[in-house]
Amino acid sequence: MKAVVKLLNVTYKIQDGNEMKPILNNVSHLFPAENLSVISGPSGSGKTTLLYAISGLLDHLDNGSISVNDTNIYSLKEHQKDTFRLNNISMIFQSLNLFPFLNVQENICVPVYAKNKNVTAETKKKISYYLDKMGLGQIQKKALGVLSGGEQQRVAIIRAIIDEPALILCDEPTACLDRENSVIFLENIKTLITDTKLTAIIVSHDATVEQYADHLVELSDGKIL
């Protein structure tokens, strides 16, 4: 499923002392489908907040709207937002993406469990395929403790795509990785976009990530440059 993300006059403010400080200031933008979009910018520019805004994780917007495939996320009620996120969006965080009490396969299957679906033979085949594709080998039953940070991040990607979301949002996914693992991660994302037609938006200030971008957005002081 294609995902088109539209931002229209998005403003989000937080309390800073006695006044409200804008973190996102009247942002309007269209993120194209089946593309790897990279949001870059200096620290404190509002990159992560923009990503969370797109995912619907913010409790409100002070102004404007965000729509994913024509669904205005912030017009939805809280539980509807949860359901929408569960069915359409996957997230990869900077670190600690996985649940330490689950093994590799169980971690990958969390979105399946969350949707109250059974892990079918087809799902297991897919897991096996992606594990091989990402150079991890058949490590389904392994505990997380034996995996490196780079391997864990790749497991997190498989989890993000296993139930075929329309949109993947990644928050500084390469921040804890060395260059070699960063390249593996980005190559994998690019391949997945080609294979599964998903849309990916990555927040990063890593120059390597920017090199892989189909669509680059630069943010400064809560505004798109």
Binding site: H79, D82, T83, L86, S90, M91, L96, F99, F101
Partner: peptide
Amino acid sequence: KGDIARMRAFGMSAGK
């Protein structure tokens, strides 16, 4: 608390 927060971020409801 991190795991709980991530479950919520993935879209699992508080009830779940």
